[in-house]
Amino acid sequence: MPLLQVKNMTHYFGGLRAVSNFDLEIEAGQIRGLIGPNGAGKTTIFNLLTGIHKPTEGAITLDGENVVGLRPHLIASRGLGRTFQNICLWRHMTVLEHVKMACYAKLTYGLTGAFFGTAKRHREEAQIETKALGLLKMLGIEHFAGDNVLNLSYGAQRRVEMARALATEPKVLLLDEPTAGMNPEELSQMMAIIRQVHQEFGLAIFLIEHRLRVVMELCEKIQTLVFGEVISEGGPEEIQNDPKVIDAYLGKEAVE
């Protein structure tokens, strides 16, 4: 049984068929990639998986259990963590607060703790803080812990997103163009982080990427999406040499 399985998922926005008959199987610990030109429907697939949109058709199971129709926070707490293509941080919160917030589902102190500041609350929040600081350290941003996220560089903001997603303790991590807009140095750092996270947590990772170098180096298996349809699927070698992919996608990049 694959960890995350998608069968025959189709989604319409009004009359627009954004995703058609999408299938996916991710095993525990696997890194998979999804490439495709802008507007192909990659982000939409993530939004469908995480419950932001409900697929018009199709089945999604995580660890054998159906997640279609569950509210997004429940899907997230069942183990589907994600980052966003256009960084979605909370503009008035510090880096540490971000990572602590992602532990929300694990809080048990309830409203009594929140209103009256019980000992249990202080204990739990201290625990989360330790965990959050550990994650920040791992991603090399612990010295920003008390800073507002808006004061961080682009690369550091991406790391905050990553730390925050990891704090939800995902089984599968969905990364939406984690290297978009990065300079070469930040890019190789981010790739190192993805590898490190993969090893340390034994996560399955599903990666949307724009830059082929990243997918080719990191992923075992890659799908190419064009106009909502998967036109080819395979290992890095196969994808690179698939004429359909070259035609639809690589062709343009190869010229650049």
Binding site: R71, H73, R82, M101, A102
Partner: peptide, 29 residues
């Protein structure tokens, strides 16, 4: 007490980016 707890700060998360709050396991509703 409330607004300084993580549960209370969830209000800020909902305000600043509700989708992100949802994706980070916050029961926004």
């Amino acid at each position: 007490n409330f607004v300084r707890s993580v549960m209370g700060k969830a209000l800020n998360a909902v305000r600043d980016d509700e989708l992100a709050a949802d994706a980070m396991t916050v029961n926004t509703r």
